[in-house]
Amino acid sequence: MEINKPKEALFSKKNRKLLKDPMNINNPITVQVLGICSALAITVKLKPAIVMSLSVIVVMALANVITSLMRNMIPNRIRIIVQLVVVATLVILVDQVLKAFVYDVSKQLSVFVGLIITNCIIMGRIEAFSLGNTPWKSFLDGIGNGASYGLILIVVSFFRELLGNGTLYDYPVVEKLGLYDLGYHNNGMMLLPPMALIVVALIIWWQRSKTPSLIEKD
């Protein structure tokens, strides 16, 4: 039986879809509504947002692979605890690496590194995907969802840092352009937490106007 089945190529059309879909029509933040908590709190500046996205991609890809390898061994009743232990172990590793190499960013992220454990994206994708699929597919799904989560984070923090602080990745863009001399002022409001919600809402608005199939029915 196994022999007759044609072997699937590593990057077949179906597998590429796993990477591509989360970017738009199945975006974890704007469509699946997962992982909002951390997405909003750490998007004041680009640097922490990028570090956070990388950490989430790493944790997610590895957690998906590990749970997918164990998917036939985990008893159904205790699967949440098993998943939490796998994710928590990976997050501890990431946290220690961050503390060792980028201590200042790790201080800025404060509790949000730990909160990757309960980030709904990770638990959601493990529950919905990797418990029923092969490790390679789960790996691609993890990378795809992690990267599209990171994409939203980076877009939001790009606008918030540029408009609120006049810098990009701590580089003073607005000052170099000489806009301050023309009477330009930073909009300090962009740095306040509630503005993150409004920027994400604008992204959702834009995306749904482009893709009408995503509009919610009452």
Partner: peptide, 8 residues
Amino acid sequence: PPALRGLG
């Protein structure tokens, strides 16, 4: 507005 309905 339709595109903002629900989540937005």
